[in-house]
Each structure stands twice: as structure tokens, then as C-alpha cells.
Design a protein around this nucleic acid. Sequence first.
RNA 1: GGCCCCGUCGUCUAGCCAGGUCUAGGACACAGGCCUUUCACGCCUGCAACACGGGUUCAAAUCCCGUCGGGGUCACCA
Length: 522
Amino acid sequence: MNSVRTRFAPSPTGYLHIGGVRTALFNWLFSRRHGGQFLLRIDDTDQQRNVDAALAPILHGFRWLGIDWDEGPEVDGPFAPYYQSQRLPRYQEAVQKLLAAGLAYRDYATPDELKAERDEAEREKRPFLYSRRWMAESESQAKKFAAEGRQGVVRLKMPREGKVLIKDHIRGDVEFDWAREQDHVVQRADGTCLYHLASVVDDFDFQISHVIRAEEHLSNTPRQVFIAQSLGYPLPEYAHLPYVAEPGSKSKLSKRKLDKYLKNRDFALVNEHGQAIAKALALPISADTFNPVIVDFYEQVGYLPDAIINYLMLLGWSLDDKTEFFTRQQMIENFSLERVTKAPASFDPKKLWAFQDHYMQQLSVDEKVERMLPFLLRAGLIDSPANTDAKALLAKVVTAAGDRLKVAGDILAYADFFFLADDAYPFDAEATSKHLGEKQSVERLGRFRTCLASLDVWDVEALERTMHDFLAAEQIKIGAVIHAIRIAITGKAVGPGLYDCLALLGKTKALARLDRAIRSYG
RNA sequence: GGCCCCGUCGUCUAGCCAGGUCUAGGACACAGGCCUUUCACGCCUGCAACACGGGUUCAAAUCCCGUCGGGGUCACCA
């Protein structure tokens, strides 16, 4: 009956952080590996106004990634509610128990008095430890302090000697001196309770067997152990994961330092690529919620959940010296805490990109079409999902584009010209001046147009033959003309094979586009 | 600053616990080449690391000690 139960406890912040996903993923994998449950608990003791709105993107992100939870918001479960804001009575009950056992005390120190003690300790260069001077040891003393107009909070009465040993699945045994632990506040004057107490009570109530969380919580663990033991709770197993670090550094990844990451070449590249797609979609985005640190970025741009999950799984974990690709099933079968790395791992957007590339290549044309159609719809390049002609064209475009489409949104940045009107696609300025800048090039384009106009059969083979004959007649190499043609019909310097483009456009459109270029640059 | 954690190519990592098969393997990135007169894919080649110093040992990336470096944490935030 020792079921494995893990949890991830997001705060409703309005966005899902890539580092948070990694932590959640390891929790999820561990529970799945052992046939247990994974739960989501909402850490909203900070009572914000609109928890639902701030939580929605987070839940949505997990769903999108395929990280499902057995208990928590929207699915409930035997221990509902899973919101800390709704569990205050339980926390207060725990506080009473601590008080009654003499393991916590009411404290009436003012912030200024506390600060004075802290400053003094600093001046004397000794570690700060609260003097307990305003600790109320009896009811009458409490009344006396209150009569002075003081506000009472509840503090933990931490041991002032001895050591505590924390057994951690990743760190091994870690020892702390009790005497360095502060008498942390667990309940405010207004009766609300603080995170550490709430977290410990929740983990017990929800029967969490393994607390798997980021390493930044390791130094918080002694106080949590103290709370749990004081309350008579059995201790959960602990596993402190290395945190996810910034690109090219060992500092913790944080969405607040976006400006810094943008100086990283790879990060900037991935970001710009995404921004371009967002722009093509006219997404109402802000840098706050739309950047490569936030999961939503990847969904909007059209990454594949499998790519992200696979990449994240390998950030701080490995099976062996060569296996890189895992199906969900393989992940679950192979995951173990023992093989989690101890050192922090830098988030590398380029490597994520490489996984994305791989997984995209695994998709069939139909699967790609299914993912790209919504993008064309949203950009207004296709009027309706029921437009079968447009869908058929899309399938052909996707086939011709092949590996060039790295994310679903690339259909916009890369192949929009197929869907735009013959006079609406933009000409790339740099490419145009390079290949259509000279009169000679444009004249040659005109002659090539004449050759094409005489074609009865319009397919790749015929087009290739026409080109061959044209080159012979002109006595030139293909390089002298192919770029100009490409730009004329697509507006871009890069794209699928030229004959594919021509064939897919059809004779009428192709000729119209050549005419437009000749008119514009002749 | 105190406490705690961590330290293998630029990055993710294998190897470390059970020392030799490690002139340290793989992947991403980067550089060059092939393919293709676009781009991308693919293929080939190259560049590139055991933080440093002492031990122990016939033998150390692996064990021990120290140093240095990086990070986390020290709230009436979570």
C-alpha cells in the first residue's frame, strides 16, 4: 500500500516556465514509472485576485505537453480541494497543534525590532538568530504584548543544537546544523499561513510519497522536516533536482532576465524565428509571456510536444552514453532518480531546435498538414478548413518543402507565397537587388517566360526540359537565371525546388507572377 | 558573509560508487568538404574537456585532503 505519489505545485503566475516543466516532468515520469499518481497542487496562499485566469495557461500548457495529472484542479480527487487558498483551516489546525506541543510560539516582535537584531548580528559578524525576546510563553504574557499594540505571529521553535540529516535520492546524505535554522514564521497576525507549513501539511494530507523538486529547496528542507516531525508526520522521500540554468551560464533560468538571454546568439535566433511567426499571425503578444523561456511560445509557434519533452528529459538525466530519442513509453520505462545529474544544466534552445527538427521529420505529410492548416487559417491565407482545394495544395506544398519546415508556423514564414494572391506576395529587397537589379536579368526573365508560355504540359519534368533547352539557347548556366525566376515567382531567395514551385503554382499563376516581376523591375 | 550544493569539450552528457579496456565516448553547436548552382535535409572530416595542487597506488577523470571557481539559500514570497 506504499503507492508512489508525486506532485508539482505551481503558483498561479499566468505562464508556464520551461524549468517548471522539467521539474513537473520528472515528477510525472517517476509516478508513471512506479504505477503511482501525479498530482497538481496550487500554491496560491498569496491570494491573488484572479487565480483561475492565472492558472489557465499553466494547466493548458501541461495538457498540451501531454503531462496529465491524476488529482488536482479540474479533475479533483479524493483529497480535493487542491488549492492552498482553500485549505486554511487545516493549516491553522496544524499551527494549533505545534503551539500546544510547545514546538511553536507566539511572537510579538515588530519588524523594526527584528531588523535591529539582524543588523546587530551583522555588525558583529555572527549569524543572526532571533533572541525570542518577544516570545509569549504564557497566555497572560501574550495579552500583555497585545495590550502594547503588538501584533502576534506564530514562529517555529527550532532546536538550537544538534544536526539533522536529510536523505536525498540525488544529493545523498546532507547534514545541517539545527542551530543555523531560523524560527520561521508559519502564521501571520491575520491568521493566514505561510508556504512551508502549508506545503508540509499538504504533502501529508495528499499522501505524497516523494517530494521531487528543484535544488533551491534543499536549504528549506530542514525546517520542513522539523514541521513534519513536530506534527508527527512520516517524512516523504526527498529528491532535489539540479535547477535549469541560463543559456551559457550556471545561473538559474528566470524569465526576468530575458534581456540577458537575448544577447546569447542561439537564444536570440530561436526567439526571432518565433517572433516572426507570431507577427505573421498577428498574435497579441508581449515579451513577458512570449519568449523561449515560456512554454506557450513553443505552442504558438508550432513546436511538437514530443520534441520539447524529449529535450527536457535529457536536461539533467540520461539513460546511457548514446540514447537520445525516447517515446513516452520508453521514458516511463527507463526513468530513474538515480540517473539524475547533480550539476545544473543550461537550457540550450539550439538543442531543443535539433530535437524539434528530428520529430518534425518523423511526421507524415498528412500529420504536418493537420498541424499547419490552423496556422494558415489564423493568418487568413486559407478561408475555411473545408476548403479542400486549399488543403490539397497545402499537402503538395508540404511535400515539396520537405525538411525545410521545422515548426508548423514555418508554413507562414516559408511558404506563404503559395497562398497569397499573385500580386500580394512581397519581394525580398536584398534578393531582388541582387538578382533582378540588372536590365539583362529581367530581359532574360522575359525570354524564359515566352518559353514557358508555349508549354502544353505543365509538370516538373516538362519544366525541367524547358529550362534545359532555354539554357542551351541562351548559352548560359542555370545559376545565371534560376535565382531571378525564384524571386519572381516566390519573392524569396530561399524555398523548395524551383520546378516544384513552378509546378505547384500552375501555368497561369506562374506566368502572371513572372509578368509582375518584369513589370516591377524591368 | 554563514550554511548547503556543484565542478568532464562552448552546451547537454557517458565514464566516477566497485581505480587499469579512457592517447576520455556520444549528441548539439561551430569550421571545412561532399550532395544540390537556392535553402534545408543527408553524408564525411575537423575543432574541442577530466578546474587546480597535493597525496594514496604499480596505475587516478575515478579514492583521500586542500585550494580555487560557480551556484543556491539565508523573508510575515512561493
